[in-house]
Computed example of a mutant assay.
Amino acid sequence: MIVVNELSKVYDDHLAVAGVTFQLQQGQVCGLVGPNGAGKTSTLRCIAGLIGSSDGEIRVNDLSVTLNSAAVKRQIAYVPDDPPLFDDLTVGDHLEFIGQIYDIPDARTKASYWLNRFDLAGKYDAGATTLSRGMRQKLAVCCAYLADPKILLLDEPLTGLDPPAIRTLLDSVHEMAENGKTVILSSHLLAMISEVCTHLLVMKSGQAVYFGPKSGLVGDGVGAESLEAAFFAATESSPLEMVAT
């Protein structure tokens, strides 16, 4: 579903992403982790087609992101770490808007399901500017889920969420994968995302220092008992030592 080959992204004289290569299949959940400034958000934005890559190739469901931008975007939902909601719309307006632009059958029923699932039903008529940081995050996730994309790109989606909302989000990601969605989940909350990830992409200074199944980095016989321990081991090693075959 996602093929990234030698992706590079340069901003002026800064190399943010340097030759990153990986691929994900349908139903896989990839934890994208790395220190601040590692290139995680730039990688996600390039896959989503929101910014152009400087070099390399990205294909989504066998479509080139560069040559088929509109078709690719119809298959992707991207939730940034600080969702840019419409200040003059209510919670309900946001979901109605998504339902209309994606021409979603029975959109109100599906929107109601997600609002109830994320404990936002009571905020249906509330304006976006009245929402807390966590509520804004949950609304953005509800909008993404309502669009029913084949690929979900979630950039720090746990930021600002309380423990029940974190559990709801992680459970929903697992369900999405079981239903054939491909998910990339970026987060610094390593212990929390570890349970839902099938794969890991660890980045440092724009490079992929590890990509492969989670079992190749965390678990018996590989030297790391937790994702946190594996993260420190990977980011303290050279890229050639850590990239999975």
Rank of each mutant, 00 (worst) to 15 (best):
V209H: 14
S69F: 00
K110W: 00
L240I: 06
L201R: 09
L153K: 05
Q26N: 04
V10F: 00
L189R: 15
H94F: 01
V65F: 04
S237P: 07
I101N: 06
C46A: 10
S42Q: 13
P84T: 02
A38Y: 01
Y102A: 10
V79E: 07
T159N: 13
A111Q: 04
A71D: 14
C30D: 02
P105R: 01
Y113V: 05
Q207L: 08
L15R: 14
L169S: 01
A107N: 12
A177D: 02
M176P: 00
G52N: 13
A147R: 15
P35G: 01
D162L: 03
L154H: 04
D103A: 11
A71Q: 14
V222R: 15
I51G: 03
I58D: 10
I184F: 05
G27L: 01
R136C: 08
R108Y: 03
V3T: 08
S187N: 06
V141N: 11
T41G: 01
R108P: 00
Y124M: 12
S205P: 00
L85R: 11
Q75D: 11
S172P: 00
L161A: 04
V72M: 04
G56L: 13
P80E: 11
A121M: 14
K204E: 14
S226F: 01
L50Y: 05
P164N: 03
Y113W: 09
A229L: 10
R108I: 03
L24T: 01
Y102R: 15
L189K: 13
S42K: 10
N68G: 04
G56H: 14
P149I: 08
M135H: 11
F97N: 05
Y210I: 08
T66D: 14
S187T: 04
D155G: 05
T109S: 09
Y210N: 13
P35W: 02
G180D: 08
G134C: 06
P213L: 12
S205A: 14
S226W: 07
A77Y: 05
G39P: 02
L131W: 10
Y210V: 06
M203R: 13
G223I: 09
L200A: 13
C143G: 12
V91Y: 07
S187Q: 03
I47T: 04
S186C: 10
G92L: 07
A224S: 15
A208E: 13
Q28M: 03
A111E: 06
N61F: 03
G52S: 14
F22A: 02
L158A: 10
T198Q: 10
A128S: 15
L7T: 02
T245H: 11
V183S: 07
D106E: 11
P157W: 04
G122E: 15
V209L: 15
L67W: 07
L161C: 06
V65K: 12
P157Y: 01
E236T: 12
A234S: 15
G212Q: 15
